[in-house]
Design a protein around this nucleic acid. Structure first.
Length: 574
DNA sequence: GCCGTTTTCGGCCCGACTGTTTTCAGTCG
């Protein structure tokens, strides 16, 4: 799949055009094209082959030609020609906070700044102060941006940011006069990584809220602090934006601050067509505010039902809302059990009984114990004998539990030759078999894909665990041909996992949506190694929502009997 | 560069904050 590469080239083209001060709508067109390609659930080469590229919104003749050009030659003519217009590393400077395309372009033209090193030298020179719009404070601000850029650690995992958000929300609720506090931004949309945290507050004393916010523990840098808006950087480099708004504008502000930016742009376009104006202060007809207090009211006046935050990515949700075809999304209440959990029998930290009781407290009907298999010795994988012993232990504990069932499972390794790490007679005695790749990551696409497909052809294999093997921001996916895997999953009736662990989220939202479109069932598993990680099911559920999934597409919404029946297993009698 | 229930040209989302200005440009979200 060349989708990501093509999207990257469109983004790069837009970056360069910005520095060259090209028409901003042309720049936006490239950004939109990049995003459309990025979000595609199909291989762009297929669309190119069938001549359907220009049917995509935002892809016209120019960008379609560029895509075909790249697919055929490995180079994109448009990009190659603008690339020569600026020094090779100049566009990287755009990633420095506080430094935008205008300033980068000016510094290059006036002071011949072409690299980060030359930028740092220029910031110390006196000549920079002679440039228009440049003063001592601006220089300090950019120097601060350079420091942040050099020490940056990429995006923050949602699982790490949510506890911080909870703590801040708790703190702000305690400020005098505060009425409502809400998380907004990409965290409210449950993106698996976030750039910053956005928090919204309404209350009678904005000044007190801003003061409490910029003065809280852990703040190392106040980036902005106005009467309604403030930004801080925390000691772990996480940036947090706060906005204090009037109660009458709560809904409009929540929409604005939740984004995505692209979703908001679409809505504003629709407002404009209706002769209205949408901003964070409300939906206006001239000077009259026609809606603002709740999100629902604003959406209604735009002619559509409320759209769940997880869908607000401009991936077709606006069109679906307009013609009343939004999906019924799965919710946490639909989930009957966790389909992937480890215990101290392998590399987990809790006993089977502790895991089961915690799952029962979460309101589940069942949990699958899926410890590692024998060849994963580094994780204390279970030999055949120990797996059978574990089964007896599960039987004993099940007798003690009422209204809850521990199912016998395994997360069996898919070995380098594609075989599964236990013999069929062992696998067929289990309730659920997950098969995952934990070795041979460096194999070719053909080998990796072949391994997974041969595992799925084993009738005892029910679920493929973390199908791409990525670790967010740490390890790239192995070279798997996901399309081929999804086709085989549909044919063999094998489910694909959304591994809910915050470091994995694998399948991701786009993949999961594609899989279900191809007729594949999705399994949600937290891959917990301790019951305290069970909450990550929320990450999986909301990722499934981001993938537009209804309960029917998800294995864990089945009750125990229906689940075992679906997996073609009789299962133990109650 | 894309797009069209005001179509093939003339539009294209909106506002806060900052630092530089003396009315505004750049950056960010």
């Amino acid at each position: 799949m060349k989708n990501r590469e093509i999207a990257r080239l469109f983004h790069a083209t837009a970056d360069i055009l910005e520095i060259l001060d090209a028409n901003r709508f042309r720049i936006n067109a490239y950004r939109r094209a990049a995003r459309v390609v990025e979000d595609l659930t199909v291989d762009i080469a297929e669309l190119a082959a069938s001549g359907e590229l220009t049917e995509l919104p935002g892809i016209g003749q120019g960008t379609a030609d560029a895509i075909v050009d790249y697919l055929e030659t490995g180079e994109m003519f448009g990009y190659e020609s603008v690339r020569k217009e600026i020094p090779p590393k100049l566009a990287e400077l755009l990633e420095i906070p506080g430094l935008g395309p205008k300033t980068v372009g000016m510094l290059w033209r006036e002071l011949n700044v072409r690299t980060l090193r030359q930028l740092k030298r220029a910031l110390r020179s006196r000549k920079i102060l002679e440039l228009p719009g440049m003063g001592p404070k601006k220089v300090l601000k950019i120097q601060g941006g350079v420091r942040a850029y050099e020490s940056r650690s990429g995006r923050t995992l949602l699982g790490a940011a949510l506890p911080v958000a909870d703590r801040i929300i708790e703190l702000l609720r305690g400020v005098k006069g505060v009425k409502d506090v809400s998380l907004a931004g990409s965290a409210r949309r449950w993106r698996s990584t976030i750039g910053d945290l956005d928090i919204l507050v309404t209350g009678s004393d904005p000044k007190a809220v801003i003061e409490a916010f910029v003065g809280m523990d852990g703040v190392v840098d106040v980036l902005a602090s106005g009467t309604t808006k403030a930004s801080v950087r925390m000691d772990d480099a996480l940036q947090i934006d706060l906005r204090v708004i009037a109660a009458a504008e709560w809904g409009a502000a929540l929409m604005y601050f939740t984004g995505s930016k692209e979703h908001n742009v679409r809505l504003r376009g629709i407002a404009r067509k209706k002769g209205l104006k949408l901003s964070e202060y409300g939906l206006f007809s001239g000077d009259d505010r026609v809606a603002a207090k709740t999100e629902k009211a604003v959406y209604r006046k735009l002619g559509m039902p409320w759209i769940a935050p997880e869908l607000r990515e401009d991936r077709g949700e606006v069109e679906a809302a307009l013609d009343r075809s939004l999906p019924t999304l799965v919710t946490s209440e639909d989930i009957r059990g966790d389909l992937h959990h480890h215990t101290s029998w392998s590399d987990g930290f809790a006993s089977i009984e502790e895991v089961a009781r915690a799952a029962k407290r979460r309101g589940y009907e069942y949990i699958i114990i899926s410890d590692h298999s024998q060849s994963l010795s580094i994780a204390n994988g279970l030999s055949e004998e120990r797996l059978l012993e574990q089964g007896e232990e599960i039987d004993r504990i099940n007798k003690k539990l009422r209204g809850f069932r521990i199912l016998k499972g395994t997360e069996a390794d898919i070995k380098s030759d594609g075989s599964v790490d236990y013999p069929d007679e062992i696998l067929s005695g289990l309730d659920v078999v997950i098969a995952s790749i934990h070795s041979g990551f460096e194999q070719s696409q053909e080998q990796i894909t072949g391994r997974i497909i041969s595992a799925m052809e084993n009738p005892n294999v029910d679920i493929i665990g973390h199908p791409t093997g990525r670790l967010i921001e740490r390890r790239e996916p192995y070279a798997v041909d996901l399309d081929a895997v999804m086709r085989a999953a549909a044919e063999t009736g094998t489910a694909l996992e959304i591994n809910c662990h915050d470091e994995r989220v694998d399948l991701n939202d786009i993949h999961a949506r594609r899989a279900v479109e191809m007729g594949v069932m999705i399994s949600l598993g937290t891959d917990s190694h301790d019951p305290s990680q069970g909450w990550m099911m929320d990450i999986g559920v909301h990722t499934a929502r981001r993938a537009w999934l209804a309960p029917q597409s998800i294995l864990n919404t089945l009750d125990r009997r229906a689940l075992l029946k679906h997996l073609s297993r009789s299962g133990p009698a109650r």
